[in-house]
């Protein structure tokens, strides 16, 4: 396959990752969020594998496999089990002003392209055009964490942000060193488990996973 064709495929997959980022931003149902997240992971893994093939970087295959196992299978499974156990599958979030959120998201993408343009000029990697998308994915994940009130949605936002970071590493330098990547993967796995514990704790303390209830934790200074 020609390099040009591979670059096109990479661009397509990146576009899908970004699209899923927007999807995560707008989706209200918990299960659907989970599915979108898994799809994002799948496209990310495919993207990584193609970059590995195109650039001939052996260890990226491993990263792709890791992404596939962790973000497409394991973490969605853990979250799925958590959602079932806690019987929150019916929860539908009330979100303020989805269109506005999406508009902010678009502005972030534009900003990302703007910020990344100097780097793209200097880079010679086949992934240079995706760097801006990677940054945008990070920003969209953060935006999702800001706009959501449900704890599970927050966690998915956080994981989407991590997807963006991984994506950025692949686009900028063909991935991080293997050691770092393994460490990050382990961290994410542990984080998912800890989130599970927190869900239960938050639920028992506040009888809800709505994080706005946590405002009660604020220290009362009593000036």
């Amino acid at each position: 396959m020609s390099p040009v064709f591979l670059a096109q495929v990479v661009d397509l997959l990146s576009a899908l990752v970004l699209l899923l980022g927007f999807g995560l931003l707008a989706q209200r149902r918990i299960y659907a969020l989970l599915h979108l997240f898994a799809w994002q992971g799948l496209f990310l893994a495919a993207n990584t594998a193609i970059v590995a093939y195109g650039a001939g970087v052996r260890h990226l295959y491993f990263s792709a496999l890791l992404t596939l196992v962790m973000k497409v299978a394991l973490i969605p499974y853990i979250l799925h089990v958590l959602i079932q156990r806690m019987k929150i599958e019916r929860d539908v979030e009330t979100m303020v002003n989805v269109p506005l959120t999406l508009l902010i998201g678009i502005a972030l993408v534009v900003l990302s392209y703007n910020v990344m343009s100097p780097i793209q000029e200097f880079s010679t990697l086949m992934t240079r055009s995706t760097l801006a998308i990677a940054l945008a994915t990070v920003m969209l994940g953060l935006l999702m964490m800001i706009t959501r009130r449900h704890a599970v949605a927050q966690v998915i936002g956080f994981l989407a942000m991590e997807n963006g970071l991984f994506f950025a590493a692949t686009s900028a330098t063909y991935g991080m060193p293997m050691v770092v990547e393994l460490g990050v993967a382990l961290d994410i796995l542990i984080a998912a488990l800890i989130f599970g514990v927190f869900f239960f704790q938050i639920r028992t303390t506040f009888e809800s996973l709505d994080l706005s209830k946590m405002a009660r934790l604020k220290e009362d200074v009593g000036e």
């Binding site: 920003m139 953060l142 964490m145 706009t147 009130r149 994080l211």
Partner: peptide
């Protein structure tokens, strides 16, 4: 600046990054 809302704290980081 401690409002007690996670979203507000996240906005602090978000704005810093921006």
């Amino acid at each position: 600046i401690q409002g007690g809302r996670i979203q507000v704290y996240l906005i602090y980081s978000f704005l810093t990054i921006l």
